[in-house]
Amino acid sequence: MTHSQIASGATDLTGSLLIAMPGMGDERFEHAVIYLCAHSDEGAMGLILNKPSSEVTLEGLFEQLGIDAEPGSGHEPVHFGGPVEMGRGFVLHSNDYRSELTTLQVDDGFSMTGTLDVLEHIARGDGPDDWIAMLGYAGWGPGQLEGELAENAWLVCPATRDLVFGTADAAKWGAALDSLGIAALALSGEGGRA
């Protein structure tokens, strides 16, 4: 993919991962790995995969929402999905689950549900096999993400089920870089001068 394809919006990055470059300048996105649920000429929407909340657990969310959970469920953290609409919840999950209300199937491997019923299914133990619950999302207006890509704020790599669901949060950024053959230590947050 060339910078001109990205800048012109010719490439649909839906279903890809964005990897934050060092020195981005926004600590909310420092070392972030974002799954892009939607990308078009109208903008983009994604979910940060590797920033678990230290304050919100799924168990606490179940209690707050009045969801009865099976014993032992709910110990997983709820992730910071991004700075937009932080009171709104999303679950990125495998395609083996479909909500009765609304599920967006992003591609052959991933879906996103933003309705309460997915949490109810997870609490009962009959939800998706793989999932990440989060509050908030990352959003870009028309052309905004393309501009950030042209400024080398993000790298793009394919999303795999193992990287998204099978890699520890603290290791996702490095693993995503590794998938591109890039060593994290080789990246610098400062631009060079000729």
Rank of each mutant, 00 (worst) to 15 (best):
S53G: 14
V56L: 13
L58E: 12
E59W: 10
G60A: 14
G60F: 11
F62K: 02
D68Q: 15
A69N: 11
P71E: 10
G74W: 06
G74C: 10
E76S: 07
H79A: 06
H79Y: 15
F80C: 14
G81E: 00
G82L: 04
E85P: 05
G89I: 03
V91D: 06
L92K: 01
L92I: 13
L92M: 03
S94L: 09
S94R: 07
N95T: 13
Y97Q: 02
R98V: 09
L101Y: 04
Q105N: 15
V106D: 03
D108W: 09
L116E: 07
V118G: 05
H121Y: 07
I122Y: 06
I122S: 05
A123W: 01
A123N: 12
G125E: 00
G125D: 05
D126A: 14
D126F: 15
D130I: 00
I132T: 10
I132G: 03
A133V: 15
Y137T: 11
A138F: 08
G139A: 12
W140Q: 05
G141Q: 13
G143R: 03
G147N: 10
E148Y: 10
L149K: 05
A150V: 10
N152A: 07
W154H: 09
W154I: 03
C157Y: 11
A159E: 05
D162F: 02
V164F: 07
A168H: 14
A168E: 15
K172P: 05
W173V: 13
A175G: 02
L177E: 06
D178M: 02
S179Q: 05
S179V: 03
G181E: 01
G181N: 12
A184W: 12
L185R: 03
L185F: 07
A186H: 08
L187W: 00
S188P: 07
G189S: 01
E190Q: 14
G191W: 03
G191N: 13
G191C: 04
